[in-house]
C-alpha cells in the first residue's frame, strides 16, 4: 500500500520504511504455513463445485418423485429416498446451492450494513459514533439466533426473509470490527498527509482507510459464512427459512426426523453436509486469521 501522492524517501533519519508484503503475497504463502486453512479452502472449493455442477452430479431432479417412498440406500439411490420418493442424495447435492446462496447473500448484506455504519462511525466520530455504537451494543445484547427467529418469523417464513434476518444479526459484528480498524488508522500520519494535500473524505475513506480494514473483514467474512450456514439450517429446521419443496439441508433434516426410525439416512446425511460446509469455512477462517491478522488470534 504505497502512497502515490507523496514521494516518501526510503529512510527518515534512523527509521527504515519497509513496505508490508501485499495482500496477495501474504495469501500466496498460505499452503506452506497453514495446512489447515488450505484444507478448508479445498473443502469450500469442492462444495462450490458441487453447487455449480449439481445438475451434472445429481442423478435425479431434487424436487421430483424418482421412486417409491422411503427406499433403503442402494446403488440406484445412494442415500435412499424420502417420504415423497425423492432421491435424498440428489437433494443433498442441490442443497449445497441453497446453503451457499443464503450464506453469501446474508453475509454480503451484513457486510454492506455493518461496514458502512462502522467505517462512517469511526471516521466521523463524535455523537454520530456514539449513537451508532450504542445501537450496535443493544443488538449485541440480543442472543443472535433468538433475534433471527423473531425477525424471520415476523416477516413471514421464506428464504428471502431468512437471508434478511441473518444479514441483520451479523451486521453489528462487522460494524464493531471495521470501526475499530478505522480508529486504529485514523491517527496515522499518512491519513493526515492525505488530508493536508486536500483529499476529499470519500477519497480518503476508500483509498486510505478501507484497505486497512480489509484484513480483519476477510477473516470475519469466512467465519461468519459458517455461522450463517448454520443459522439458515436452524431457521429452515424450524420451518422459518427455506420452504418445501426446495432442498435445504435444514428442512430435510426436519422432515427426516419424523421418519427417523424407519429411514435414519434422511436425518443423518443432511446434517453431515452441514458439518462439512461449516468445517470448511471455519478452517479457512482460522488459517486466514493467522496469516492476515495475527492480532485477532485468541
Amino acid at each position: 500500500m504505497s502512497e502515490s501522492h507523496l514521494s516518501v524517501p526510503d529512510t527518515l533519519g534512523d527509521f527504515t520504511i519497509r513496505e508490508q508484503p501485499s495482500l496477495w503475497r501474504r495469501l500466496s504463502i498460505l499452503p506452506r504455513q497453514q495446512p489447515i486453512g488450505t484444507f478448508g479452502a479445498v473443502i469450500i472449493l469442492i462444495v462450490i463445485l458441487v453447487a455449480l455442477f449439481a445438475p451434472v452430479i445429481a442423478p435425479y431432479e431434487p424436487t421430483s418423485q424418482a421412486s417409491k417412498r422411503l427406499l433403503d440406500p442402494s446403488a440406484i439411490h445412494l442415500i435412499g429416498t424420502d417420504e415423497l420418493g425423492r432421491d435424498v442424495f440428489s437433494r443433498i447435492i442441490y442443497g449445497s446451492r441453497i446453503s451457499l446462496y443464503v450464506g453469501l447473500i446474508a453475509v454480503s448484506l451484513a457486510l454492506l450494513l455493518g461496514v458502512t455504519t462502522g467505517v462512517l462511525a469511526g471516521y466521523i466520530g463524535g455523537s454520530f459514533d456514539n449513537i451508532v455504537m450504542r445501537a450496535v451494543d443493544i443488538m449485541f445484547a440480543f442472543p443472535g439466533l433468538v433475534l433471527a427467529i423473531v425477525i424471520a418469523g415476523m416477516l413471514g417464513p421464506s428464504i428471502t426473509n431468512a437471508m434478511i434476518a441473518i444479514g441483520i444479526i451479523y451486521a453489528p459484528t462487522f460494524a464493531r470490527v471495521s470501526r475499530g480498524s478505522v480508529l486504529a488508522v485514523m491517527g496515522e500520519p499518512y491519513i493526515e498527509a492525505a488530508r493536508l494535500i486536500g483529499g476529499r473524505d470519500m477519497h480518503i475513506i476508500f483509498r486510505h482507510v478501507f484497505p486497512n480494514v480489509l484484513a480483519p473483514l476477510i477473516v470475519l467474512t469466512s467465519l461468519n459464512m459458517s455461522t450463517a450456514i448454520l443459522t439458515e439450517a436452524a431457521l429452515s429446521f424450524l420451518g422459518l427459512g427455506t420452504q418445501p419443496p426446495d432442498p435445504s439441508w435444514g428442512t430435510m433434516l426436519s422432515s427426516g426426523r419424523k421418519f427417523m426410525e424407519i429411514a435414519p439416512w434422511m436425518a443423518i446425511f443432511p446434517g453431515l453436509a452441514i458439518v462439512i460446509a461449516v468445517l470448511g469455512f471455519n478452517f479457512l477462517g482460522d488459517g486466514l486469521r493467522d496469516v492476515l491478522d495475527p492480532r485477532l488470534k485468541e
Binding site: 436452524a234 433434516l253 436425518a267 446434517g271 452441514i274
Partner: peptide, 11 residues
C-alpha cells in the same frame, strides 16, 4: 463447533 445442535439432538 461445526455440529448443529439440532442434528446432534436428532442423532
Amino acid at each position: 463447533l461445526a455440529f448443529p445442535n439440532f442434528w446432534l439432538a436428532t442423532m
